[in-house]
Amino acid sequence: MDEAPFKCLRCGHEFKAPYDKKAPVEHACPKCNSNSVRPLKAKTRPVAKA
C-alpha cells in the first residue's frame, strides 16, 4: 500500500501513513491519537505560462 501525507485536524500534526482510497483503513494521529486525520492531496505545481 502506498504512503500518503495526512494532517491531524485535532492537533495539526502532519505525518505519513499507508493509504488506499479503495481499501480504507482506520487512521489515528501518532501524536494525539485522534481519528480526525485528513489525507492531504498532492499539490500540483501551477504551470508557468510562456
Binding site: 485536524l9 485535532r10 482506520e26 485522534s34 481519528n35 480526525s36 485528513r38
Partner: peptide
Amino acid sequence: RPERLQLEW
C-alpha cells in the same frame, strides 16, 4: 475550516 468537523472511532 475543515477542523470544525471532527471524526472519532
